[in-house]
Structure formats: structure tokens, C-alpha cells
């Protein structure tokens, strides 16, 4: 087994094993903490898809995280109140079945990413970073001003949505659902990045001109990667909404985009389990340092600065001794 495979297994083992141990020793709070890490990891895996493999530095992934959250919250609140979402062109009711919510989340965040990506990918470099940020801000302000679903105050839905045969309010079952989705997405990413599409995407990141010269047009590939990446992050947003049973414009803010990026960088850019390691470290730091001082983010800032300046490969890069992933 290669060193990187050992790191991958160890990281996932730490997350899942940690949650199981916490459950067996009766620390339900730590199980919830692990769930939060798994959800953040999923959001990071989504961003890593575009950023790590495709080189598309999106500073607006909070848009998709928040859209996933809002779709979930809106469907759940309609299911609770019994009022249909819309009666035109046909009656559409809310739902609290996760299996019905997730496809809707994937659809809406995918469509949003298609529109945003088609416009943003006309630009590159610094422009791309700022344009994605600006689109996310646009959606943020829309959510703040849209009174129907709580506006600035956000939207609560009291009961976690249902999954067939599972008691979702039980911390361990809920963790296993999130971790299961995380594992499936990691598997999907690993397969896609070995397939022709993934290879073309990575080739376009490393050398766009050469890729074009061998007859691959990067735009469509990049747009597809951006949409897939947004769908994964949107799914994470849906789970995050279910975790808190609450959505608010904070999920859409630029700060959230920055945090998702931090998960990816702390763990290791372009590494399969990089975002998982990063999200685990972030949640652990938030929990431990947040208990010591209210100003723990100063320390987070210093750690982040240290990683960027002296260890650009993140945790996984450091452990594997090979610096930045694939680069």
C-alpha cells in the first residue's frame, strides 16, 4: 500500500472511528462534532473538485452551500405548514424526506452553478476569484432581503428531516448518513479524476495551452467540473441545514466561502482526503481553542498563515512528504 493510501485510510478511520468511540463511551456531543466535521469535509471535497483538480479558485462556494441549505429549509418548512410551494404550473408540495430533498438540492445548486459558471469562466485568474465572490454576495443580499423565508433572521424548521428506516435525531445514525455520503462522494471523486474527464480537467489546470493544442476545449470541461463541485457543496449545505435545523444568510456569506477554502488548504489542495483532514482540524481547533479564548480566530489566522507560507501542501502534503498535491 502506498503512503498516500495509508494517509487516506488513517484520516477516514480517525473520523469514523472517533465518532464510534465517542458513541460507545457515551459522548453524544463529540458524535455531533464529528458530524459537523464530516459535513464541512463534504463541502470541502466539493470545492476541492473545482479548486484542487481544476485550478478554478472559486471564492463563492458559500453560494452553493447556502442554496443547498435554503432548498432544504424551504421544502421542510412547507412540509411543516402544509402549504404548497407553488400551484403553477402544477401543485408542488414541500417534503421532509431527505431522499426527495437531496435530488432537489442537487438540481437547484447545479443550475445556479451552471449560470454562475458560464459567466465566471469567461474570466480567469484574479477576475475569476472576484467574480465568483461577487455572485455569492449577490445571492447573499437576495436572501437577506427576501422576506418570505425569514430574510436576515433565517428560517428554522425544528425537526430534522426523515430518512427511511433511520431515526435521524439519534446522533450516531445521523453521523453515519453524513459519513456515508462523504465516502460515496470521495469514491466518486477518485473515480472521476482517473477517468478521461478528470485527466483532461487536471491537464487543463497544469497547462491550458498544451491541452488546447491536443484538441481538448477546456471551457466545457471546466464548466462541468464547476457544476459538479457546486452540487457536492450544495449537498453539504443541505446536511448542514439539517444538522442545525436552521438556515440563515450566514451560510451564504463571503466568510463561509473563506472557511470552505480553509478546509481545503489546511488539509491539502488537490488531495483526495485533504478537505477531510482540514475540516477535522478546523472543527477540533474551533472546539478546543474556542474553549480557551473567545479570540481563537487569531490563532486560526496564525496557523493558516503558517500553512500558506511554510507548508503549502497542508496536512496531507506534510505527511506524504511530497508538498502540494499533483502539482
Amino acid at each position: 500500500m502506498s503512503r498516500i493510501a495509508v494517509i487516506n485510510l488513517a484520516t477516514l478511520g480517525l473520523l469514523i472511528g472517533g465518532a464510534l468511540t465517542a458513541h460507545l463511551t457515551g459522548h453524544a456531543f463529540l458524535v455531533t462534532l464529528a458530524t459537523k466535521a464530516a459535513i464541512f469535509a463534504l463541502a470541502g471535497v466539493g470545492l476541492n473538485f473545482a479548486l484542487g483538480y481544476g485550478g478554478l479558485v472559486s471564492f463563492g462556494h458559500a453560494a452553493f452551500f447556502g442554496i443547498g441549505g435554503y432548498v432544504t429549509g424551504i421544502l421542510a418548512s412547507h412540509a411543516m405548514s402544509g402549504q404548497p410551494l407553488t400551484t403553477l404550473p402544477y401543485t408542488m408540495n414541500g417534503t421532509n424526506e431527505m431522499l426527495a430533498i437531496w435530488p432537489m438540492v442537487l438540481l437547484v445548486s447545479g443550475l445556479a452553478a451552471l449560470a454562475i459558471g458560464a459567466l465566471s469562466l469567461r474570466t480567469s485568474g484574479v477576475y475569476f476569484i472576484m467574480v465568483t465572490l461577487a455572485f455569492a454576495q449577490m445571492i447573499y443580499w437576495f436572501a437577506v432581503g427576501w422576506p418570505a423565508y425569514g430574510g436576515e433572521d433565517g428560517l428554522s424548521f425544528y425537526v430534522r428531516n426523515a430518512f427511511p428506516g433511520v431515526q435521524t435525531m439519534q446522533p450516531l445514525s445521523w453521523f453515519l448518513i453524513c459519513a456515508g455520503l462523504l465516502l460515496m462522494t470521495l469514491g466518486f471523486t477518485a473515480v472521476v479524476m482517473r477517468a478521461r474527464f478528470g485527466l483532461a480537467l487536471q491537464a487543463a489546470r497544469r497547462n491550458t495551452q498544451r491541452t488546447v493544442a491536443v484538441g481538448i476545449r477546456p471551457f466545457g470541461i471546466r464548466l462541468t467540473a464547476f457544476v459538479l463541485s457546486a452540487m457536492i457543496t450544495g449537498l453539504a449545505g443541505s446536511l448542514y441545514a439539517d444538522l442545525n435545523r436552521f438556515v440563515s444568510p450566514a451560510m451564504l456569506s463571503w466568510y463561509m466561502s473563506g472557511e470552505i477554502m480553509v478546509f481545503v488548504i489546511l488539509g491539502g489542495v488537490g488531495r483526495l482526503v485533504g478537505p477531510v483532514a482540514g475540516a477535522m482540524l478546523f472543527v477540533t481547533m474551533e472546539h478546543l481553542l474556542g474553549g480557551i479564548s473567545d479570540y481563537w480566530q487569531v490563532l486560526l489566522g496564525l496557523v493558516l498563515l503558517g500553512v500558506v507560507l511554510w507548508s503549502p501542501g497542508g496536512i496531507v502534503g506534510m505527511l506524504s512528504g511530497r508538498g502540494r498535491g499533483h502539482a
Binding site: L51, V57, F59, G258, M261, V269, L300, G301, L305, V308
Partner: peptide, 23 residues
């Protein structure tokens, strides 16, 4: 460095300055 590193390092500076000012 590439723009990604710049975004992150300056994001880290925001965290440090904001929390420092709050303190």
C-alpha cells in the same frame, strides 16, 4: 505565489486583524 495562496494568507490576516481589533 499563486492567487490561491494570496487569498488564503490575506484571509488569515483578516482573521488576525478583526479578532485583534475586537480584543
Amino acid at each position: 505565489r499563486d492567487h490561491l495562496d494570496q487569498v488564503l494568507a490575506t484571509f488569515a490576516l483578516i482573521l488576525i486583524f478583526s479578532e485583534g481589533a475586537r480584543w
